[in-house]
């Protein structure tokens, strides 16, 4: 089992999650973050930190391509361990996701 970053992160990249990750398992590119499933210890500290609800447990999305995507992308992207500024437009995207009931 592991935790998974969903597409809600794309174009937001708030990164509030990374500062509470006890094992530094977040990796990222310019658009979004991914979780390394081999490092995640399933503590769940990151879930309430995400303003757009972009972190879920794999058992809640069984069969989703996001599970593979997180494993593959985290393997080749750098670790993000300190909070960074959200992407421009992140707040507007958050409000839109909330309005659409996707958070």
């Amino acid at each position: 089992m592991t935790h998974i970053v969903t597409d809600n992160c794309t174009s937001c990249r708030f990164t509030d999650c990374v500062s509470v990750c006890p094992v530094n398992c977040f990796h990222g590119d310019a658009d979004r973050l991914y979780i390394d499933p081999d490092l995640c210890i399933d503590c769940g500290a990151c879930i309430p930190k995400c303003p757009v609800g972009a972190i879920v447990e794999d058992i809640d999305i069984i069969g989703s391509p996001l599970i593979d995507l997180n494993a593959k992308q985290s393997a080749k992207l750098p670790v993000i361990k300190t909070k960074q500024a959200p992407l421009p437009g992140a707040d507007a995207r958050r409000d839109k996701l909330i309005a659409e009931g996707l958070v």
Partner: peptide
């Protein structure tokens, strides 16, 4: 209050 990872924020 808070779990293991919460302490990273606090420690920083």
């Amino acid at each position: 209050s808070g779990i293991i990872g919460t302490n990273r924020d606090c420690a920083n």
